[in-house]
Design a protein around this nucleic acid. Sequence first.
DNA 1: TTCCCCGCTTGATCTGAATCAAAGCAATAA
DNA 2: TTATTGCTTTGATTCAGATCAAGCGGGGAA
Lengths: 248, 248
Amino acid sequence: MTLHEVPTLLHRCGDCPIRHRAVCARCDSEELTTLEQIKYYRSYQAGQTVIWSGDKMDFVASVVTGIATLTQTLEDGRRQMVGLLLPSDFVGRPGRQTVAYDVTATTDLLMCCFRRKPFEDMMQKTPHVGQRLLEMTLDELDAAREWMLLLGRKTAREKIASLLAIIARRDASLKLRDAKGPLTFDLPLTREEMADYLGLTLETVSRQVSALKRDGVIALEGKRHVIVNDFARLLEEAGDDSDGGLPV
Amino acid sequence: MTLHEVPTLLHRCGDCPIRHRAVCARCDSEELTTLEQIKYYRSYQAGQTVIWSGDKMDFVASVVTGIATLTQTLEDGRRQMVGLLLPSDFVGRPGRQTVAYDVTATTDLLMCCFRRKPFEDMMQKTPHVGQRLLEMTLDELDAAREWMLLLGRKTAREKIASLLAIIARRDASLKLRDAKGPLTFDLPLTREEMADYLGLTLETVSRQVSALKRDGVIALEGKRHVIVNDFARLLEEAGDDSDGGLPV
DNA sequence: TTCCCCGCTTGATCTGAATCAAAGCAATAA
DNA sequence: TTATTGCTTTGATTCAGATCAAGCGGGGAA
């Protein structure tokens, strides 16, 4: 079992070199053991819905492999993605039973789950898990607010550049970057999903991706594989050079 | 000192009739007492900035009276409000030292503050304060996500109606509504601030407010006082009949 | 009283992104 | 091999909201 196969997320690794969003094999503590005892796995096929908005969610979970999205929908079908779950990300709401958005697997998905009750009991007993969860939630909130700026005020081109920058950064942080070849990654989303995330239409997404390619900001290999030669340039196109690469 | 003058927010009132977002005079517990000991007050004038994005924030606080906004800004000056703080709302990030947005007083503002360190110590000792804070943060995250749907997918008219509905609801919950006259409230924001919240221009806000008035959805008394005769109609105009009235 | 200022409204015009419509392309099935 | 299907690109046109530009109205200062 490799490092990234058990991303419980909830354990902060004191002095070990692995970033604390993934569990580190070298440091296992009491609450990690407790978590091990109550965890179980669930897998979903690409396109399958994990939970519907309003449903009872009786577990919390983190993504092991695959990608899931959180979306909200208006009656007439207009859709807005409100979150993207990559491996090692957490979903769930200790202290809340229902979710306010649909969770959907966009690729085949494996999640590591904990039933809510024992998880909450464990939180009671080991307070720093709760603290960690609070920090994670605050990070998500920051990310959501950054996204509000994007949705409310950025142009289509800036939106695309921002999304590419975020995916690039998150992907790089999972991949333990190999020195300094050009930064490359696969888009985990279709054009339509990108549109739903950015508050655009798929046609506009396609046009702006083409424009960024034409202008040499990115290169493409096939439709999905992106090559970024100059990350600083991409950030500039994104409209804010803030480090914005917060989780979610 | 009336009920709403000490909105520490962090205390959940077991069986008392007051909603738990404001502190209840009837139930005081140990941690409430601890909070009393470390709290202090700060006041700000309308227009004054409480903290700048990136600054160190060495306290957490809740709003006693007045209104504050959270905003993010792009280099070229485009602004997006990402939160609105009304009396009893909480700001601050236990476990984090810097904030990612500007906090500005839009009216004269009185805040009840707790220095971060003793507050965090207190959180350690009384875990349910941490839990409560996690719940509040999760609620804020839900609200932020609902706002993402608004920013990404709603029309200008729907945005205005949504904002009015949210303000109406929050205002009503602070005012202990007097039976069933028509629902009325004062807009706490200028047209420009509304625009910054909704990702619009002030001209568009003005036009759409006029349109809602023309169509009989709302009535105005002066520029700021709003009368809603048919709240259901307003919600319908807002585009989703979800109960959407989550905090923030 | 007058003036000025600020927040607001309204009108005319422009434009970025949406919409409508066709094709292209690559992978899988037949 | 050809057809089918799902995703993507590109073009033509439209339209909601932005931008540019006046003008209004109420409150405070002189």
